[in-house]
């Protein structure tokens, strides 16, 4: 495998992990979040600080990273989830800007210069880089997908999906809206934190801009493109959006424009995403399987 391919694949895997977290919040629980990169950043900075300043290994730091991301998910999520849905979009954008500003202006976090010197992950004495790091990221991704699959099959997941479908009706069946929205939000932020930790150790050097609002927009584009609330949508979206700028190098400067246009087009023409039911792609797949249900 070429280094180039390995590098791109590693980024795609990390982005997919973070996008899976967002998919739980937006896709399953129906809570729009435009600030998901904040928690990606919190995970990355926590991992970076714990390894550089506290000297912890990736493995020793990981539980702490996930715990902090979950705790901040509760603290930042709770007030947002109590407000009406249209405000949620605004408050989550606010969270993103505030978190980015904290990284930027509080000297402890390294300011605009960022945080450097984050060591490589060591696994049984082997420093992970290149293909071995990609392997670790893929294992983490598989684990996250497994959690998402389990979540859709669980009672908690059912509760979240019921709330997304009709909050009032769900609450009249004994489901507490705030509790389940918060559960989904926190699960999403913890998964984002895992992606952040991998990212920090992959880069060795992180800056506040790595976790800005444009990154949140990209995460949302990934799940909208692939299919919100589907199991494989975030992966497909991350692959397409991760590979596209590489294929069309000249377009790299217009990335944000591309994501914006893509979001609009998808919402207009394929609101369920590429893997949503009744999408063009799904219909094609069904026909290829020969199991045209409409015929029966």
């Amino acid at each position: 495998m070429s280094t180039y391919f390995v590098t791109i694949s590693t980024f795609i895997a990390i982005q997919a992990i973070v996008a899976y977290g967002l998919n739980i919040i937006v896709g399953y629980a129906g809570q729009i979040s435009l600030g998901h990169a904040a928690f990606f950043g919190i995970g990355a900075y926590t991992a970076g600080l714990l390894s550089t300043k506290a000297g912890l290994s990736f493995w020793a730091a990981l539980p702490i990273v996930l715990l902090i991301c979950g705790a901040l998910g509760v603290i930042l999520g709770l007030p947002s989830l109590r407000v009406r849905e249209d405000f949620l979009a605004i408050t989550t954008i606010g969270i993103n800007f505030i978190v980015e500003a904290v990284f930027l202006y509080v000297p402890f976090f390294g300011g605009a210069m960022g945080l450097g010197g984050i060591p490589k992950i060591v696994f049984f004495g082997v420093r992970l880089k290149g293909e071995s790091l990609l392997a670790l990221c893929l294992v983490c991704l598989a684990f996250v997908i497994l959690i998402c699959w389990w979540f859709t099959k669980s009672w908690a997941g059912l509760g979240c999906r019921a709330i997304a479908s009709d909050e009032t009706a769900a609450s009249s069946m004994g489901i507490s809206p705030v509790r389940f929205k918060l559960l989904a939000f926190v699960l999403g932020t913890v998964i984002a934190g895992l992606g952040g930790a991998l990212y920090a150790h992959r880069m060795g050097f992180i800056t506040p801009a790595d976790f800005g609002f444009p990154v949140s927009t990209m995460m949302l584009s990934i799940i909208v493109l692939g299919g919100m609330g589907t199991l494989w949508g975030p992966l497909l979206g991350a692959i397409i959006l991760g590979a596209l700028p590489e294929v069309f190098r000249p377009l790299a400067d217009y990335r944000m424009l591309l994501y914006g246009a893509l979001l609009l087009l998808m919402v207009r023409f394929q609101p369920g995403g590429l893997l949503g039911d009744a999408s063009v792609l799904m219909n094609l797949l069904k026909r290829m399987k020969g199991g045209d249900r409409h015929a029966g």
Binding site: L158, R161, A162, A164, S165, D166, T168, A169, A170, S171, S172, M173, G174, I175, S176, P177, G229
Partner: peptide
């Protein structure tokens, strides 16, 4: 009391116009 806690006490409603969960299966 919020409605989910009334529901926990076994009060249930068949609301006007059904309000089924559109994106869930019948069994779900």
């Amino acid at each position: 009391l919020p409605s989910h806690l009334r529901a926990r006490r076994r009060m249930r409603i068949v609301p006007e116009r059904a309000r089924v969960f559109a994106h869930l299966t019948v069994r779900e």
